[in-house]
């Protein structure tokens, strides 16, 4: 029994989710007496491929082509499905990242399999994989079982822990997949990176600001604390709608769903739609001058006080601690 783990890379570097997926696949494979084959797609990637061995891949299949430098929905889905067939993989696991969510449904159809999307837990009981996934923006959890012979899962980033590499290198097999123009009927031509900005969807620590900050200029306070913590800056919808911050920073039901290890909510009331996007964070800190703000109901630590005084003081303490 083989599990195919899709290891996402961009610019020749693995995303953190690549290691999470391989490790999660390995945990499941061990319970089914199976093994993990990882697949990496891109250009000039053979050099990085072997390190997936350190997270549990017994082999890595690398598919390299200059035209695969940037993502293509159609080409990537064809390759992943072709490799799954070549390896007779019964299970395919991908990250629930923007790339993984885009490619997974197409892979599922090509393999005639069912897809469980956005899983936060996988357990094996009597040979059956049970996947837990949040529904209604995390207000409920359901357990799902994929009933087709081939099963596809996407796993929510930052939830499954990769741990550190055990140092083993996997053998890398380079495979050529024939690709014609039709396989690139949808393809990325350019990536516009938000200049060096950390994305909330990938960050391990997030500092978010809300309407209580009174104006966009006061977000410098949030940026300073985020800078000291090496965190990404997030925002509530109220401040995005007001045009203080851009939508890519919005956390919540109509923004991004995040699961960092630390989420700091500053001057955010904690409306259900905001909680929907961040309630699965491991630790939540709330700073709000209203002791009855709903954000305190899910916070692990709170300071009931004025953000304008409290936040700079926290930034100073963090700098002291981290020796900056």
């Amino acid at each position: 029994m083989k599990i195919l783990a899709f290891a996402e890379q961009r610019n020749g570097q693995f995303k953190k989710t690549a290691f999470e997926i391989v490790k999660a696949a390995k945990t499941v494979a061990d319970q089914l007496s199976g093994e993990v084959v990882a697949v990496v797609i891109g250009n000039n990637i053979a050099a990085i491929a072997g390190q997936l061995g350190g997270f549990g891949a017994s082999k890595v299949v690398a598919v390299e082509d200059a035209r695969l430098e940037l993502y293509s929905t159609t080409a990537y889905s064809k390759i992943i499905a072709d490799i799954a067939k070549l390896e007779s993989a019964a299970i395919v696991m991908l990250p629930a990242s923007e790339m993984g969510k885009d490619v997974a449904p197409r892979v599922a159809v090509k393999l005639d399999g069912g897809l469980a999307a956005g899983c936060t837990m996988l357990t094996v009981e009597g040979g059956t994989i049970k996947a837990t996934r949040p529904v209604y923006a995390g207000k409920g959890l359901v357990e799902v079982v994929v009933t087709t012979a081939t099963k596809v899962y996407t796993l929510r980033p930052n939830v499954f822990t990769a741990g550190s590499s055990n140092g083993q290198m996997a053998s890398v097999e380079n495979i050529k997949i024939e690709l014609g123009d039709a396989d690139f009927s949808a393809a990325v031509t350019e990536v516009k990176a938000a200049s060096g900005k950390k994305d909330v969807a990938e960050a391990d620590i997030i500092v978010s600001g809300g309407r209580g900050l009174k104006g966009p200029e006061n977000f410098s306070m949030i940026e300073d604390l985020a800078g000291a913590l090496g965190a990404a800056v997030g925002a509530s919808r109220a401040v995005v709608d007001a045009g203080w911050r851009t939508h890519d920073e919005q956390v919540g039901q109509t923004g991004k769903t995040v699961s960092p290890s630390l989420y700091v909510a500053v001057a955010i009331s904690g409306a259900v739609q905001h909680l929907a996007g961040m309630s699965s964070s491991k630790y939540i800190v709330a700073i709000n001058k209203d002791k009855d703000a709903p954000i305190f109901s899910i916070a692990d630590y709170g300071i009931v006080g004025d953000a304008f005084e409290v936040v700079p003081a926290i930034t100073a303490e963090v700098k002291k601690l981290l020796g900056k």
């Binding site: 399999g113 069912g114 897809l115 469980a116 049970k130 949040p134 529904v135 995390g138 207000k139 409920g140 959890l141 359901v142 357990e143 799902v144 079982v145 994929v146 009933t147 087709t148 309630s279 699965s280 939540i284 709330a286 002791k291 305190f296 109901s297 899910i298 916070a299 692990d300 630590y301 709170g302 300071i303 009931v304 006080g305």
Partner: peptide, 21 residues
């Protein structure tokens, strides 16, 4: 192709700690 089992509610969080004001 996917069988949906029981729905549950995520475990309620323990009351957090108010550190100060």
């Amino acid at each position: 192709r996917v069988e949906v089992g029981a729905m549950s509610k995520p475990a309620a969080k323990a009351q957090g700690k108010i550190v100060g004001s």
